[in-house]
Design a protein around this nucleic acid. Structure first.
Lengths: 213, 213
DNA sequence: TCACAAATCAAACGTTTGTTTGATTTATCT
DNA sequence: AGATAAATCAAACAAACGTTTGATTTGTGA
């Protein structure tokens, strides 16, 4: 599906509001007001509020389609280098699309799946990510660089969980670390560096043998 | 505040529904129907829907008041043992109160804080947990058991983030690991063990010197 | 310039929302 | 048993909800 500029603008506003107040907590009048359009335009362009959030997922998923394959299939990189690049990719992606990932986290917290479309998309994405990590880990094991007792599932949980938690509780950590004066961009930059270093050291200590680089 | 049996029953039903559909997504008629009471009873007992969720937070927070102090102040345990007990405690607590922690995660995802009461309670809880981890880590450093370059903030993120992520995406991991036949209790038990082993090995590798136990 | 389609609008639609009302039942206490 | 308070109920309330309508404006191609 193709969306024109006006539709993309509506999607962008909806994304911000859904992230802030949730899907049920955001009314189409909220969206219309923030996007400076008439309420009826949402039904006119998307059909319904439900279809609007589906369009949001569709757009954001299409944007991040490739990405992983390039890392996995790169012959020049060692398994550990691939892991490092993967880690930085996840950090950049989650920190660079905070609103959308906020919405995706909310959707995953919902027991009653509102829409099959969205849960299918999320499943597909998770599967890809999991397969990517898995194939890198297996390659490392086959080459004798990584330990045999590795749980890709739990390592994924640590990677995504740590980044998500850091983002979700960032206002708290700003407070206790007296970083409230920092601008958002500066804070994000510092957070990226810390997360990167932290996760790389965890992964190295968990998967790699001592002797490896 | 004290709550009678009927109020606690309402709170319990509300907790389950809020976890499944979110606060905005759950109507007081939903709650009243599931709890088999009249809609007006919620206003009668709590004043408003908003006050109901505040009551839920109040009750759940009071339940888990002590807990941490006992670990930190126990003289017989080594710092690493304390960390291990802390890890198992977090796993048990999060897995044992899935509904409530689902709601708490949702609240933390909300930018516009609906209620100062709730965000204050969450802040207080986070602070306690962070201080607990921090004091154990510092004790380990002072005794020369732990490395000096430890970031308590990021380690907290890894601990809570990993467990939260594992719980949130459990249906996915059941699917890809062909564990769909397992009952919820069996799955939880197996997940607990795996998370415990995984996180302990991460913490040991990250904070402890090689020579230590 | 005309005709036709796309876009925009205020207004109204029928539901659902959280809350309140006032009557009625149930429990408590002397 | 009788009086007083607590609990429960169906019904109604205004407000907000997502969506639709029908008229009006804007844009496009001939």
């Amino acid at each position: 599906m193709e969306y024109n500029a006006k539709q993309l603008q509506i999607i962008q506003v909806a994304e911000r509001l859904f992230a802030g107040k949730g899907f049920s907590g955001t009314s189409i009048r909220d969206i219309a007001h923030e996007a400076d359009i008439n309420v009826s335009m949402i039904s006119y362009y998307f059909g319904s509020k439900e279809k609007l959030i589906e369009a949001l997922f569709e757009v954001r998923f299409n944007e991040s389609a490739e990405r992983l394959d390039n890392i996995v299939s790169n012959e020049d990189l060692s398994p550990l280098q691939k892991i490092y690049i993967l880690i930085d990719g996840v950090i950049d992606r989650l920190l660079g699309n905070k609103c959308f990932h906020n919405i995706m986290l909310r959707e995953q917290l919902s027991g009653e799946e509102r829409t099959q479309v969205i849960s299918d998309l999320i499943y597909e994405l998770k599967l890809k990510n999991w397969q990517g990590i898995n194939s890198i880990l297996r390659e490392g094991q086959e080459k004798g660089h990584f330990k045999e007792s590795i749980d890709a599932t739990l390592l994924s949980a640590t990677l995504y969980g740590t980044v998500n938690h850091a983002i979700t509780t960032q206002s708290f950590y700003r407070r206790i670390n007296s970083l409230e004066s920092l601008g958002q961009d500066e804070f994000d930059k510092s957070l990226k560096q810390k997360l990167s270093k932290h996760l790389k050291s965890i992964f190295k200590a968990t998967v790699a043998y001592e002797t490896i680089e």
